[in-house]
Design a protein around this nucleic acid. Structure first.
Lengths: 135, 135
DNA sequence: CTTGATTTGTACGTATGTATT
DNA sequence: AAATACATACGTACAAATCAA
């Protein structure tokens, strides 16, 4: 598979699509390490800018994690604990504010679940480790 | 307020923080238009690259929307419709896959709610327009 | 343990394309 | 039609974290 430079789809989107396919096809299983950015760039004939943008796409989809000095890694999806939601409790999902992201140690691409109880109290949970069901 | 170039916090993060504060302080209310990228860059003494990264941060937080040719705009938060969740139904939140984002016309920074019913059927909702409560 | 190589993160500039006004 | 403004994409340079010798 290859990047089509005549396509209206940006090179970085095409590259993100290609990498996503390879991840979901098991070419890079959970915990696997992607090639370095310059290696990916040589493989597909794009500059480092485009490689980094493609990686940023997958990062914000919650598919991979990145870190300085370490190659991108396919995210291991943790088990979800299910929260009980009473009839008058409300649940919404949204992206975290920066202080929430710090407090919950959230990586990019992870939403939060905001649970408002009947008494008005609010709790916030990382959406990759918590889900909800009725009760 | 100003960018501290000697700080370990990246310039684009500082700039995103400044813009976020101004939005939440009402300096830019819902629907308001931010200054053009080069104008922001001159205001704070940073290059367009850093302005665009700061804007990308706010975009992925779901705070603003962007478009080609049009300045960034503060997102209007739509009303949420509340879904009823029975005891054995399960709800999880995550970032959308690309086909989901297209199908639901999602802008960046909007998670999805995935509802799995007792019978195994699965429905996916945009998390900025839907929430959940027990029933 | 320290050094050096590798790799990602930040930040700049430049050029071109495309959509809006 | 022209000006404005965002989007894509390349390259360069340096800083910072990690890893292997």
């Amino acid at each position: 598979m290859d990047i089509d430079r005549s396509s209206p789809t940006p090179a970085y989107v095409q590259l993100a699509d290609l990498l996503r396919e390879q991840i979901s096809a098991g070419r890079y299983p959970q915990g696997a390490v992607l090639p370095p950015e310059d290696g990916i760039g040589r493989l597909y004939g794009v500059g480092r800018t485009s490689v980094r943008r493609a990686i940023a796409v997958l990062l914000h989809e919650g598919l991979i994690v990145t870190g300085r000095g370490t190659q991108a890694q396919v995210r291991a999806q943790p088990e979800r604990t299910m929260l009980g939601i009473a009839g008058s409790d409300q649940v919404v999902a949204r992206m975290p504010t920066p202080p929430e992201a710090r407090r919950l140690a959230l990586t990019a691409g992870v939403p939060v679940l905001e649970v408002t109880r009947t008494d008005g109290s609010v709790e916030v949970f990382p959406a990759d480790r918590y889900g909800a069901h009725g009760e």
